[in-house]
Simulated scan of single mutants.
Amino acid sequence: MSGIQGRIETFADPASLAAHVADWMTAAALAATGDFRIALAGGSTPKALYRLLATEPFLGRFPWPRVSWFWGDERFISHDDPASNYRMVHEAMLARAPVPPDKIHAMPDDGTPEEAASRYQCTLQKIYGARTLDPARPFFDIVLLGLGDDGHTASLLPGQPVLDERLRWVAAVARGRPEARLTLTYPAFESSRRVAFLVSGKEKAAILGAIRRGDGSLPAARVRPLGELVWFVDRAAAGTG
């Protein structure tokens, strides 16, 4: 019995998980018309996916010219810092694929965290064409999320005020980690046709088990998208391998 929101798909290992998600993303993007918007996650599991997308057959099949890339969260550090989510995605995929520069929307890395969050929100609102999110018109086509061993996702950290933010689309998170962070908020993540959690490794089994048992207090368990919610997990994270 599962108390988790959405459906769960389980794969043998991280490689087969990444291959399936690459197929899933490509099919969704090819089926759509016009600009296709994807919010990216950091972490080792998404990194394997990004590397795969930048190789054949995906390199030749994926509709790169009309896909726009956004970040779900970022450490407030320079884009060339080894810990930067932007740098990871750039090295794994963006530098290897025919991505138009104007389709890459990285979070700012200058000014104060609060100023950077405000500027990124303005960028999103300009692209969306409105200052308020309309349930009938999701911003994103796909949101990718990870799962921390404390139940956080993106930089929606346990015990932080950002968990209660329902007006702003982007927020600075000053506490909870050694460095300040920028993150999309629940309203922004939830304005999506598809939200996918990518979870692998036995170290995630305990927290994923708590979410499956219905622990709704964990930040990751509180994501309620307008569209579908799916958990792509490997057997180790599912506790079956």
Rank of each mutant, 00 (worst) to 15 (best):
A171P: 02
D234K: 07
H105G: 01
S192G: 12
S155V: 02
I142S: 03
R181Q: 10
R212N: 00
L226R: 09
Q5L: 14
S118L: 15
R61H: 05
G146Y: 10
L133G: 00
P100R: 11
F189A: 04
P158C: 07
T112N: 03
A18Q: 11
L53A: 00
H90C: 12
G151N: 08
Y50P: 01
A220W: 11
G239I: 05
R213W: 00
I77Y: 08
D141E: 13
L17S: 03
L182Y: 09
G72C: 06
W69V: 08
M93D: 06
Q121K: 06
G148M: 09
A41V: 10
L52T: 05
G43N: 02
V21M: 14
R168S: 10
L145C: 11
S84I: 10
P65T: 08
D23W: 12
D80K: 09
P178W: 15
G60P: 06
A172F: 09
A27S: 15
E114R: 14
A205K: 00
T123G: 03
A136C: 01
L184S: 10
R96Q: 14
L133T: 02
L229P: 05
E179P: 02
D13I: 00
R175L: 13
Q5W: 12
Q125I: 00
A237M: 10
F70C: 05
Y120Q: 06
L59F: 01
T240R: 04
T10W: 02
I127R: 13
I104G: 03
A221T: 08
R194D: 00
G216F: 13
L144R: 04
H105D: 03
S200N: 01
T132E: 13
L163N: 08
Y128K: 11
C122R: 15
L124D: 04
A22K: 11
R131F: 12
S44F: 08
R37V: 03
P113L: 12
S192H: 11
P14M: 07
Q5P: 03
G43A: 04
R61E: 12
L208V: 06
I127E: 05
V143A: 09
M93P: 00
V223L: 08
L184E: 05
E91S: 15
M107W: 05
P101D: 01
A237W: 07
